[in-house]
Nucleic acid binder design. Structure first.
Length: 757
DNA sequence: CACGTGTCCATTTTT
DNA sequence: TGGACACGTG
């Protein structure tokens, strides 16, 4: 027996050594799942399976990379030949090879959520529909749900029950929108995230030769985080494994937290029906957490009805009880927790031993401020990702358009960025021309002299020449980095950022440099066999925030959403914002009415902790600029109180359910506040007319990044004033300035026409 | 056409 | 709170 098998417990070993036929591993939290998966692959290879014939689907690219490295340690460099990655990345590669059978070129663009929404917004506008009734977000979710259930736009429009639902939801045109959206994506040679899976299904359904090829290539299929797969993904794996029957799925129904994205817990509950001779292995021993934490988690999840029977236990020490903290406000919650981390470090813990987990990204602010104030380094995972920043998207849009001139969304982004005098009217005209002449936008743009003349036409022609020069370079076979570098310089984007000396301008310039660096390392990385721009772009659009080069080794406290924490563990975990309507989220309860999923989310959060767990909530919190009273989350009461201890921090604890004024959760009455808006306007005292300020003759705005509190300034329009306060927000700076005539104004520095006197 | 200003509105999680 | 959009002015 191999030595690595020696360290495994009985069920773990069973899972590792089961090679032929379907296998389902129910892996409880902290039960050594990754270890089992890694060893199983190593074992397969040692038993003579070629790594080329193994497909392992993971939830994030990072998880795949990590597993590949671990396997490499056991079996050596052969591990490189494994097919590993997320569903989206693996199947985008397959579509790159074989997508031409569906009418896509290998250079197809992958639309991210922003692209999809923007396209939907245009479609809704073009159809003359009210964009208040048809919210792009909702429409996209609906289309996405359809695709994830393999309902094409044709099927959607043929099925009267969908039409009935849409009419009931006051959106009778959804079917038409779906159709237009699908056709527009197709003619843009673009796929959205759901298309990658949907089209793979279509490819395997309609092109049996292709299916056959991959069925024989992937003799062994493994799926990690199986509880989070949707129907579309499940069908792909089932088809791939139909011949060999060698399918191994690993998951935990108690940790299914992506139902909102179409994940179907039935996949795991019904798996046995699809594979009658399925072997099921349960990994029930938790090696991660203390008894206390495991028991508390069990007491919570026991409230859920839909689940597979299992008994998660721990042989670790009893451990400390779970601390509950009540704070006055969100800011105090931040302070208390920052303080506790500080104390924890005095007891010998490192920054990286701590994680603060919250339900929504917006909650991070209070913790960031508190940690910064006492100089505790932290890193935030998630939130606005690097690749969603404007300056990055701009460069990427140029690259996308170079690779694929049908990419409508990229076109809209760059045609007038940086400003080259082609305004909205001209762009609209071009789009109209394209549809009048039944041709592509690029066709019009690249032959603009036949359609328009004058200043704008020249500008458009200049743009077309620019893109053509890029295309030529690409066809010469220049690698992604050379090309991107050239594009950044000659498009004017880099120059524009370089000229911008404001704080945020400098930061943006650095971001672009960082993007260029990352393209270079993509090109230099020998593991990427395809170094083309097109290949880089497809890789990049499937990166998640969890994949971004984290300073994993950095000595920092981790802040992230619970969703982002899946698969991770920390010595001391803080689960914060445990307030009714926030966690469980009222959004979730309203739209899907799925308390059980929220509870599983809570379960996931709890089970990230190894030694210590702290739960906290605030009595008051600012939401959307308004102060709201909060009640403690029902989840706090669902934990068996034997495992709890009320913190000595914050306000002394009791659980009287409500300390807030009765039934006015959202809006305390303010005495004297006018009731209606109209009367508010009527009551407004008449302002004495303010004389317009005539700027000094030589008005020349100064470098506002040097602005300090107390500076006397002149504004082009508001006149003279004094800086009262400077405030940082989302990467830039705001100034509160008291103007002599106008009173106090808040200005965004980058836009201020200011002169420092 | 570019820019500044005012108004409205939405706020969950992510491949 | 702040981002997206509509409108008016230069």
């Amino acid at each position: 027996m191999k030595d690595y098998l020696a360290g495994l417990n009985e069920p773990q070993r069973e899972a590792v050594t089961h090679i032929d036929g379907p296998l389902m591993i129910i892996a409880g939290a902290g039960s050594g799942k990754t270890r089992v998966l890694t060893y199983r692959i190593a074992y397969l290879i040692e038993k003579g399976v070629d790594p080329f014939n193994i497909l392992a689907l993971t939830f994030t690219n990072k998880a795949a990379e990590e597993m590949r490295h671990r396997i490499e340690k056991v079996i050596g460099p052969e591990a490189k030949n494994l097919w590993m990655g997320t569903f989206h990345s693996v199947f985008s590669k397959i579509l790159r090879f074989d997508g031409h059978k569906l009418g896509y070129t290998s250079n197809f663009t992958i639309y991210d959520t922003d692209d999809s929404k923007s396209l939907l917004r245009s479609i809704i506008k073009e159809m003359g529909l009210d964009d208040k009734a048809y919210k792009p977000n909702y429409v996209l979710n609906r289309i996405s749900a359809a695709k994830n259930n393999l309902i094409s736009w044709q099927m959607y429009n043929e099925n009267p029950s969908f039409a009935a639902e849409d009419i009931a939801a006051q959106m009778p045109e959804l079917g038409r929108i779906y159709k237009t959206y699908a056709l527009r994506c197709f003619s843009a040679n673009a796929m959205d995230f759901d298309d990658l899976l949907f089209n793979t299904n279509v490819l395997f359904r309609d092109h049996l030769d292709v299916l056959n090829k991959y069925q024989h290539k992937f003799r062994h299929v493994m799926v990690d985080e199986f509880q989070d797969t949707n129907i579309s993904q499940y069908l792909i794996t089932r088809k791939l494994a139909a011949v060999s029957q060698n399918i191994c799925v690993v998951g935990d129904d108690a940790q299914s937290i992506y139902a909102f994205r179409g994940a179907n817990i039935q996949n795991i509950l019904n798996f046995k029906k699809d594979y009658p001779d399925l072997k099921v292995v349960k990994l029930e021993q938790n090696y991660r957490s203390t008894k206390n934490i495991v028991n508390a988690a069990n007491s919570v999840i026991a409230k859920n009805k839909a689940q597979l029977e299992k008994n998660i236990f721990s042989d670790n020490e009893e451990g400390e009880k779970i601390e509950v903290i009540r704070a006055m406000s969100d800011n105090e919650e931040g302070r208390l927790i920052a303080h506790e981390i500080f104390e924890g470090r005095l007891r010998g813990l490192k920054n990286s031993d701590f994680a603060i987990l919250y339900r929504t990204n917006a909650q991070s602010r209070a913790f960031e401020e508190a940690l910064r104030k006492i100089d505790i380094p932290y890193r935030i995972i998630g939130g606005l990702s690097f690749y969603q920043r404007k300056e990055i998207k701009d460069i990427l849009a140029y690259l996308r358009f170079t690779v694929n001139q049908q990419d409508e969304e990229a076109f809209k982004r760059i045609i007038n960025t940086p400003k080259r005098g082609i305004g909205d009217t001209s762009v609209a005209k071009i789009i109209v021309l394209a549809s009048e002449h039944q041709t592509s936008i690029w066709n019009i743009v690249s032959n603009i002299q036949f359609y328009m003349e004058g200043r704008t036409a020249n500008a458009v022609a200049g743009f077309a020449d620019l893109i053509k020069s890029y295309t030529v370079m690409m066809e010469e076979g220049k690698d992604a980095h050379t090309l991107a570098m050239h594009v950044a310089k000659t498009s004017g984007l880099l120059h524009e950022l370089y000229m911008d000396k404001t704080v945020e301008g400098v930061a943006r310039h650095e971001n672009v440099q960082e993007l260029l660096n990352s393209i270079r390392s993509f090109v230099d990385n020998d593991e990427n066999e395809d170094k083309s721009l097109s290949s880089f772009l497809q890789t990049v659009s499937l990166l998640t925030t969890a994949d971004e080069d984290d300073d994993g080794d950095a000595e920092k406290v981790t802040l992230m959403t619970i969703h982002g924490a899946k698969g991770l563990e920390f010595k001391h975990v803080f689960v914060v914002g445990l307030e009714e309507n926030l966690f469980p989220s009222q959004m979730m309860l309203k739209s899907r009415d799925d308390l059980e999923e929220e509870r599983r989310l809570f379960y996931v959060a709890i089970t990230r902790a190894e030694k210590q767990l702290t739960l906290s909530y605030a009595q008051q919190r600012y939401t959307w600029g308004k102060l709201t009273y909060c009640e403690p989350s029902r989840f706090l009461e669902e934990i068996d109180s034997r495992y709890l201890r009320f913190g000595d921090k914050g306000i002394p604890q009791t659980f009287e359910p409500s300390f807030a004024p009765k039934k006015q959760a959202t809006r305390p009455v303010v005495i004297g506040e006018p009731v209606k808006r109209a009367s508010a306007n009527a009551l407004k005292p008449v302002q004495p007319p303010v004389q317009a300020h005539v700027p000094s003759a030589d008005f020349e705005p100064s470098d506002t990044s040097k602005l300090k509190v107390g500076d006397k300034v002149e504004h082009q329009k508001f006149g003279f004033g004094e800086v009262k306060k400077l405030e940082a927000f989302s990467g830039s700076t705001k100034a509160h300035i008291l103007f002599e005539r106008e009173g106090e104004k808040t200005l965004l520095l980058s836009f201020a026409k200011l002169r420092i006197l």
